[in-house]
Write a protein that binds this DNA or RNA. Structure first.
Lengths: 336, 336
DNA sequence: CTGTTAGCGCGTTCAT
DNA sequence: ATGAACGCGCTAACAG
């Protein structure tokens, strides 16, 4: 009948004070390692704390000093390994600096973005890092209205308490493809996978523009984002077309092309060449190994959070709130 | 000089009340959709809220109702896709139920575990789900002392506000290996990778026991957890040994064995057979495709959170706080 | 239907 | 060195 208050039993600073025989102010002092506390009383208080199993409430602490020691992380919901690598890097560093990380997943719709931002603000994070291809700069600015220091990954933005990490992917990829195209080739195919985000789309558009300007022909192959679908589609494709130069967003999709090609009696890379924009473990585990680009996303994540913590503390002494990192090309066995 | 208070400008419920011309109690009512508010005043208040861009502070709300609408997620730091799949599942469902998710990463040491539990408690989460092979039941009980409802994944525990998800992996794997062993085979090798967690170790020990009891011989091959290391090691291994039945923890490691075997002039599965305990995308992308076991970890994650939210609300009307899920065997091309 | 008031748990002056 | 009192932003009785 009275099971409503049954859980109301968090040990508070008051009880510690009572047990220790001091006022809560003193307890607060020892918790926060303030000076002006006798070693003796410090002992007594620590004793009581241990005995009661007292843990200060981050909620109350946060309310009292307007700092939640919480940072928000906004990322899209995708099982891609590069995203989770980045996430790992962020959480790792955040932990080192004493921050809890709250994750905010964004679907790829505007309505959802608004809702996520809403809960980001409400959650009272001290700062946030955003990796979301789909988010517009206006949305990001809107977060800034609430004075939440931000690190944006992938957008080239800057501002008062706004840092950014720029990932140079487009140029390296385009360079390699252009090199192929330059000999007047017309058998270049881009796997135009739905919902891969702005970065991949920009590469596609850049390549298309280049081809038009240089009288090359590039064909788009539209598929949903699934190994199985691409694999089946390419098997079909290779019944008609017996070669080509294929550019795919990620290497697992490149693997689909490679497998389909080989099982259609084609040789890789002699007949069909395959280039993956975003490489991961698949690239070197597959046979033949896949030529691809890569970036240490764990590092990107950790740098993002490191800059953010600087913004949160000595926001003045920051040399550079912007960091650039360039994709590295790993030529392997699927291209000549 | 006065840049200390520069950020003290969060719009509060007081200002909304003032602007709207009502008391803060009324504002609170419309925020929480309480009845007993004239449609007219509700409009006025909502107006003010919109105009000021007011977002209630989850911190203050949490403090006031002793509910943070935050759930903690404890997972080990590994880039394994099955962990991040599970994480995705958890975050997804949490979001649907209106919970923010705070991630707590555990290294594989006891000291770290204590520290993580510490910050879990401090962070004032309403509940938590734990997936950590390394954590002992005593540690988990210690969390319960703070009345934090818990879902444990992988341990078979139960208690007042403690649910669990049991992953049946050991038996299915052992069944398959035993089937191989039964014909008196003595060329079975287990890749004994460091730090794979209790589950994998239990399978190893179970197999070892079985072999001893049945006069089979099983050889342990100890490697660090890296595709490259295992690949190199197996290349060396196959110079001496020209066959065998290999059991690996994960399929990317199985791929290492397969690659090494084939590049040593051995046939898979005729000469060397490979079985991966934990399968992922690699299993069907690789050629030959890898025989492995799998579990829908996204589902595991979502079920975990779903049960947790039930625990948090109508903790009485719960049919079952335990859920079992069994690994499925996918026989593919690396075993006969 | 709306306003007043007392906490939620803790940090922080300001006295002592 | 220590304590009293107020404030952080909001919710929940209790009045009116």
């Amino acid at each position: 009948m009275e099971n409503k208050k049954m859980f109301k039993d968090r040990v508070t600073i008051y009880e510690v004070a009572k047990v220790a025989g001091f006022s809560l102010a003193t307890v607060s002092r020892v918790i926060n390692n303030h000076p002006n506390v006798t070693e003796k009383t410090r002992q007594a208080v620590n004793d009581a704390i241990k005995r009661l199993g007292y843990k200060p409430s981050a909620l109350a602490q946060g309310l009292a000093n307007s700092r939640s020691t919480n940072i928000g992380i906004m990322i899209p919901s995708t099982g891609y390994s590069y995203v989770s690598n980045m996430l790992d890097g962020m959480i790792d560093i955040a932990k080192i600096y004493g921050y809890i990380t709250s994750i905010f997943i964004t679907k790829r719709t505007k309505e959802d973005a608004a809702q996520v931002i809403e809960s980001l603000i409400k959650s009272h994070v001290d700062g946030a890092v955003i990796y979301d291809d789909e988010l517009g700069t206006d949305e990001i600015r809107s977060i800034q209205n609430y004075h939440v220091p931000l690190i944006v990954i992938g957008h080239d933005m800057s501002g008062d308490s706004l840092g950014s990490i720029i990932i140079e992917y487009k140029d390296p990829v385009m360079d390699v493809v252009k090199e192929y195209l330059r000999h007047g080739k017309n058998d270049c195919y881009i796997l135009d996978i739905v919902n891969q985000g702005k970065m991949v789309e920009e590469i596609r558009d850049g390549l298309l523009d280049y081809a038009e300007a240089n009288n090359n022909k590039i064909t788009l192959l539209r598929y949903n984002d699934s190994y199985g679908i691409v694999y089946a589609g390419m098997k079909e494709f290779f019944k008609e077309h017996r070669g080509g130069y294929f550019v795919t967003p990620r290497d697992s999709l490149a693997a689909a092309v490679v497998n389909a090609a080989k099982e259609s009696g084609l040789r890789v890379p002699e007949d069909v060449q395959v280039l993956a924009e975003i490489g991961s473990k698949y690239s070197y585990i597959m046979r033949p190994q896949i030529s691809s680009f890569s970036i240490d996303m764990f590092k990107v994540g950790s740098i993002a959070v490191r800059i953010l913590t600087k913004l949160l503390n000595d926001s003045s002494s920051i040399k550079d709130k912007t960091f650039k990192i360039r994709a590295k090309y790993n030529k392997r066995e699927t291209t000549i």
